[in-house]
């Protein structure tokens, strides 16, 4: 404990300095998007202060702090985009198409024949790589596993969008709703079976532990996979 105790004051000091500097920056920042990015820096300062504790508990508390920051960032940034779209729409009455980021756009015709560097991996190995990532994520379980799984899903959807194997707006909407519903069900499964079960039937804790780890991985993986594959 000596090292942690020795470093505690310095780490808290560092966290406070980061926090104060970014708060001052927010104080005189005019641009909305910079405001949003600077609040993320403020959250980093919060993580530093928690991490200064240096116990296992601190390590476990960082995860909720990180996820809360991430989640709020996601919602607030989408609201900012929506607001800017509404503001723009009031000026010019042009409606954006749903999922226009996904749909294949016609490439502009170029007279001179240019050799585009083709990313071979997107065409040949996208399925293989995403499968490996999903399996590895399932092996890890929990939040880490969920993140790895989501990277796999993201990679697959991204590469499919680029090689344009017929993904339509309706397909994506259906897929989206199915995966979002699946994610919600996994969350409920985890609470009902995983969390409550520990207290009702302590003797079967291994079962509930496996349910909790697996359900959380599937939930986080499916959700972050959806978020990531939007090229906003």
């Amino acid at each position: 404990m000596d090292v942690v105790q020795h470093m505690f004051n310095y780490s808290v000091f560092a966290g406070f300095v980061v926090g104060i500097l970014s708060l001052i920056a927010i104080g005189y920042q005019r641009s909305d998007i910079h405001l949003l990015i600077l609040t993320d820096v403020v959250e980093c300062a919060m993580l530093v202060i928690i991490a200064a504790l240096g116990t296992d508990l601190a390590e476990a508390l960082i995860l909720p702090g990180l996820v809360v920051g991430l989640a709020e960032f996601l919602a607030v940034s989408e609201i900012l985009i929506q607001r800017c779209k509404l503001r723009k729409k009031e000026r010019e009455k042009k409606t954006p198409k749903l999922f226009e980021e996904f749909l294949v756009v016609e490439e502009p015709k170029v007279e001179v024949d240019i050799e585009h560097p083709r990313m071979e991996i997107l065409y040949s190995a996208s399925r293989f790589i995403s499968l490996i990532l999903v399996i590895y994520g399932a092996f890890l379980t929990g939040f880490t596993g969920g993140a790895v799984m989501s990277v796999g899903l993201l990679f697959y959807l991204l590469s499919q969008g680029i090689v344009s194997r017929g993904i339509s707006s309706e397909d994506i909407k259906d897929f989206w709703e199915a995966v979002a519903g699946f994610s919600g069900i996994m969350w409920a499964l985890w609470i009902i079976l995983g969390f409550i079960g520990f207290y009702l039937f302590p003797e079967h804790y291994v079962t509930f532990l496996l349910i909790a780890g697996g359900a959380l991985a599937l939930k986080v993986g499916s959700k972050l996979g959806l978020i990531g594959d939007l090229k906003l």
Binding site: I26, I49, G65, G69, V76
Partner: peptide, 30 residues
């Protein structure tokens, strides 16, 4: 537009105030 504008700025404050909330709790724990 004005509702989303207000919601956006409220979201910014809510994000900033995670620093004093979680940081305060961590300092009490320490």
């Amino acid at each position: 537009e004005w509702v989303l504008n207000a919601a956006y700025y409220y979201g910014i404050i809510a994000m900033i105030s995670t620093l004093p909330l979680f940081g305060g709790a961590a300092l009490i724990l320490a």
